[in-house]
């Protein structure tokens, strides 16, 4: 059955009919033409379909579109500045050659946007854990981690504060 879904996508409110059996990945790609959202595994394993929903990273292949009612979605298409410049995260991926075939890149960039948005500083090990929901079959991850370290460091110098590390520190 079709229902009307109202959500904010990349800053613009949209109201569109969606099939209630649709995943958000399908809606964003097929109805809104946002093809930065990739479909790799469609079972939550690879992270290629990652977007930010109300600021948090979700796999849209295992997210029913109707659940997005009233929520705010951000995809790579929404990262460009009004004057067309790339987001610092995108720039860092280019500078560190963190992209090869590019299939994993949009998803990783969205997770990186969430990570950078915290304004916190992370060790390489913490960053590894924070991107563990993404598979990249080309780069071997090192260049991706380099890009993350670069942009996290830049942002921290600009707006950063010494926050607490995310998640429980140990298993005390």
């Amino acid at each position: 059955m079709f229902k009307t879904l109202t959500m904010t996508v990349n800053g613009r409110e949209v109201s569109i009919p969606v099939d209630e059996r649709e995943s958000l990945a399908d809606t964003l790609r097929n109805r809104l033409g946002l093809t930065s959202v990739k479909k790799g595994c469609e079972v939550g394993e690879c992270g290629a379909c990652t977007v930010l929903i109300d600021g948090e990273a979700f796999d849209t292949c295992i997210y029913l579109s109707l659940w997005a009612e009233g929520r705010s979605i951000l995809t790579v298409e929404g990262l460009k500045s009004p004057t067309g410049e790339l987001n610092p995260v995108q720039q860092a991926f280019i500078d560190e050659a963190a992209t090869q075939c590019g299939f994993c890149t949009p998803g990783l960039i969205m997770s990186a946007v969430e990570i950078v948005g915290t304004g916190k500083r992370y060790s390489r090990e913490e960053l590894r854990k924070l991107i563990s929901g993404h598979l990249c079959r080309c780069t071997g991850y090192d260049s991706i981690l380099n890009a993350l370290e670069r942009v996290v460091e830049q942002t921290y110098k600009h707006v950063g504060h010494e926050g607490e590390a995310p998640g429980p520190a140990g298993h005390a």
């Binding site: 939550g44 992270g47 990652t50 948090e56 990273a57 979700f58 796999d59 295992i62 997210y63 997770s111 854990k129 924070l130 991107i131 563990s132 929901g133 993404h134 998640g167 429980p168 140990g170 298993h171 005390a172």
Partner: peptide
């Protein structure tokens, strides 16, 4: 109950822990 918070942090990856 930090043990439970830690256990929750071992599930899947960040996106799976969000959903």
């Amino acid at each position: 109950v930090p043990m439970l918070a830690y256990a929750a942090d071992q599930v899947g990856g960040p996106q799976i822990r969000n959903i």
